[in-house]
Write a protein that binds this DNA or RNA. Structure first.
Ligand code: MN
Ligand code: MN
Length: 545
DNA sequence: GTCCATATGG
DNA sequence: TTCACACCCTCCG
DNA sequence: GAGGGTGTGTCTCCATATGGACTG
């Protein structure tokens, strides 16, 4: 059933109904995480006429935070003025809020600015850039005066709900990355979603958890402004200093700390960098600490670095950390170098744009009668999803707490396999009992293709590609590959060789293509090591200048 | 008139 | 808002 | 060549409209 068609107007009540779905979901599943003001907001929304509700939801989907009333025209709303009046009366919209004048000026085009402020424009000449004109206008007038003048030209509006909308959307989707447009994608048929067992236990437990998550998320927007605002880093660190008990929030917090630490490193402030990494709980914080301590080399630094390495080896946060620790600790077992073919480039004038070397390699291989595709990580991840689909969407406490999820919340957490031990084992035994697991994968592909899945890139996982893969890979190779990934999706999510190739002989091979200035990265080494141990065919194809 | 970034909407 | 890589550097055998 | 550091392209769905900056 297709609800929407691109270019065709949706049903009159379409967008409003989407928001209603959000409200229904949140009231049903997350009533305990709502604040009093959120409930008031929802009540106010219910009270206004349907046409006003429709307009408000249209505004939810637009950029904001200010809107020009003369730019609002929706057939399903009817008279915009009437709807706006209802919304203003209900306190859902504010008319002419005392916003900083530069925000209001931003609603006018360059042409309109010249019209409205002919004096400033005349002083700067006809070729004046928009930004300069705006600056001149701001310099010549007080905010108050500017707003008074602009109010005679346009009506501007602002959403008035505090952060209630943000909280409702976060409770609905469980992430700040999705918003109401997810409904549109779903109803266009762009995304389908698996039906999974919803349970709100393990999601946001209370209003405070929601607010902490939003507060941490909001800090992300400040990172790019670090170089321009003095003292910003102090404020950020202050807000990030408290570890969070809610896992998704803690994850973001630590990620931000790592970024802040990198920024300090780059500007040559190892002490502050260490302070950031020191309270982060995510890779690569401890690796950075070891490097920084060794470089700084003040009294006790080397011993501290060694102690840290020992802690990492004793209880690594993830596989990458473990690799780092054993290497730095000098106990790194030297991995056998993967089979490598060194060749001259068939196209010496090649421009090194994205994917160019891989395409060249595919052309050469095709000339030798081989078939191949450039899929990288999408291959092992996608095959694993097809093989272990039921594990991905298995009912696990806290894994599915929101609408339109593309997988369990904990897919990339270290204990993914641990908490699914029995269902993985059961699924593996079933796979191993099949004579032709490839056939199952193809049936799954047919059934599930297009369903949003964090491990699946359906564009590269075509029936042809999967067909070629399962036809060329021996049964045991296929099973060993997916068994590897399902045991540690986070560890094996990156570093897989570039190409899947079926040679003219019928034999398959995974090939990592390397240009003259490229080399195997640690994650790629880890995959080669694993593939080698399992007896899967993989090699490096290196081009020299 | 071209090129580009951004906003919008199905 | 990630992953892979181009391009730069130093160190070392 | 190994290994580290830094910056970049590509991708989030696709088509269309708008506006700003630049060009000859
Ligand atoms: Mn690659
Ligand atoms: Mn490569």
């Amino acid at each position: 059933m297709v609800l929407l068609t691109p270019g065709q107007p949706p049903p009159d009540d379409y967008y409003r109904a989407n928001f209603q779905e959000v409200l229904d979901f949140v009231s049903t599943c997350y009533d305990s995480a709502l604040q009093r003001c959120d409930r008031r907001y929802m009540a106010a929304f219910r009270e206004v006429p349907v046409t006003a509700q429709r307009l408000l939801v249209r505004l939810f989907m637009r950029r904001g935070p200010l809107f020009r009333m003369d730019k609002l025209a929706y057939p399903e709303v009817g008279d915009t003025t009437v709807a706006v009046a209802s919304l203003v009366d209900a306190g859902l919209l504010v008319r002419h809020p005392a916003t900083a004048a530069d925000r209001v000026l931003g609603l006018l085009t360059r042409q309109e600015l010249i019209q409205q402020f002919p004096f400033s424009a005349a002083q700067l000449g006809r070729a004046v850039r928009r930004g300069e004109l705006e600056a001149a206008i701001l310099a010549a007038n007080t905010d108050r005066r500017l707003r008074a003048q602009l109010a005679t030209y346009i009506t501007w509006l602002e959403l008035n709900g505090g952060r209630s909308l943000e909280r409702l959307l976060l409770l609905c989707f469980g992430t700040t990355r999705q918003d109401l447009s997810a409904f549109v994608l779903r109803d266009l048929g762009m995304q389908r979603y698996e039906t999974y067992p919803l349970g709100h236990a393990g999601g946001f437990a209370d209003a405070a958890t929601v607010d902490r998550h939003l507060a941490i998320s909001a800090l992300e927007d400040w990172l790019p402004r670090l170089p321009h605002i003095t003292g910003l880093h102090v404020a950020l660190l202050g807000r990030l200093s408290q570890a969070d008990e809610f896992r998704p929030t803690e994850r973001r917090r630590s990620r931000l700390l790592n970024e802040l630490g990198r920024w300090h490193e780059r500007r040559g402030d190892p002490d502050r960098a260490l302070a950031c990494y020191g309270i982060s709980r995510r890779h690569p914080a401890r690796e950075r600490c070891v490097r920084l301590l060794r470089r700084r080399n003040c009294a006790g630094d080397l011993a501290a670095a060694d102690a840290l390495l020992e802690a990492m080896q004793a209880a690594p946060w993830c596989a990458e950390e473990q690799t780092f620790a054993s290497r730095q600790g000098g106990k790194g077992r030297r991995q056998a170098a993967p089979a490598t073919a060194c060749l001259p480039m068939s196209d010496p004038g090649l421009e090194f744009t994205a994917g160019a070397v891989e395409r060249m390699a595919l052309r050469e291989l095709a000339a030798g009668g081989a078939w191949g595709i450039h899929v990288e990580n999408a291959l092992p991840l996608g095959l694993t999803a097809l093989a272990y689909w039921d594990v991905l969407f298995a009912p696990v406490a806290g894994a599915f707490t929101n609408l339109m999820q593309n997988g369990p919340h904990d897919l990339f957490q270290e204990d993914f396999a641990h908490v699914r031990r029995s269902v993985i084992d059961l699924c593996r035994r079933r796979l191993r009992m099949l004579d032709d697991p490839g056939a199952l994968l193809l049936r799954r592909l047919e059934a599930k293709s297009g369903i949003a899945c964090a491990l699946c890139n359906w564009r590269v996982l075509s029936p042809e590609a999967v067909g070629r893969i399962v036809a060329a890979m021996p049964r045991s190779h296929l099973l060993d590959l997916v068994d590897t990934v399902i045991e540690a999706p986070y560890r094996w999510r990156t570093g897989f060789p570039d190409l899947f190739v079926v040679h003219a002989s019928g034999g398959y091979e995974f090939i990592e293509v390397k240009g003259p200035a490229d080399q195997l990265q640690p994650q790629q080494r880890a995959w080669f090591d694993r593939l080698h141990r399992l007896g899967l065919h993989a090699s490096v194809r290196r081009y020299h200048a």
